[in-house]
């Protein structure tokens, strides 16, 4: 089958898709967008988090066919050209990136949180990002990064 969808604002079409393929597989292996990561394929780790028609989802749990006609935003779509998004800058400035494998999913999830709730309390951040596993940082710098991104967004920086 084929799947047509809009990814990061660009209409794209994947050919020869096997029915069992996930949105994650199609993004990574057929559309040349490997930024979304595959670390569990069970929806437990959040490394493949993308926004699907506005809502953060694990792309590994979405059958490719289900994404037909939808709007998808991946980590590759967060920056505005060369200009990093506030969450991306904040992750770098706060030291929230070590191995970085969880980073794409966390960035999409954090960005979605701040769109929904621009000034989250610490417990809101913890709850919203509890579906994104990180094994390197102990999360402390990730908390710092989301707080920093929220503060910069509110300042319009």
């Amino acid at each position: 089958m084929h799947v047509a969808l809009t990814v990061n604002g660009r209409p794209l079409r994947a050919e020869d898709v096997w029915e069992g393929e996930s949105l994650l597989y199609v993004l990574r292996e057929r559309l040349g967008l490997p930024g979304s990561k595959n670390a569990c394929e069970q929806g437990e780790c959040g490394s493949c988090t993308v926004r699907l028609d506005g809502a953060p989802v694990c792309a590994c749990l979405v059958a490719a066919g289900q994404a037909e006609g939808s709007e998808v935003v991946t980590v590759e779509g967060l920056a505005d050209g060369e200009e990093l998004a506030p969450v991306q800058r904040a992750f770098l400035d706060a030291g929230a990136v070590q191995c970085g494998f969880c980073t794409p999913g966390l960035l999409v999830a954090a960005d979605a949180l701040l769109r929904r709730r621009p000034a989250p309390a610490d417990e809101d951040i913890r709850e919203a990002l509890a579906g994104n596993l990180c094994r390197c940082t102990g999360y402390e710098t990730i908390m710092d990064a989301v707080r920093l991104a929220a503060a910069r967004r509110s300042e319009g920086a």
């Binding site: 930024g35 980590v75 590759e76 991306q88 770098l92 990136v97």
Partner: peptide, 8 residues
């Protein structure tokens, strides 16, 4: 860092 936050 930059490559890691852009997915590249």
């Amino acid at each position: 860092g930059r490559l890691k936050v852009t997915g590249e």
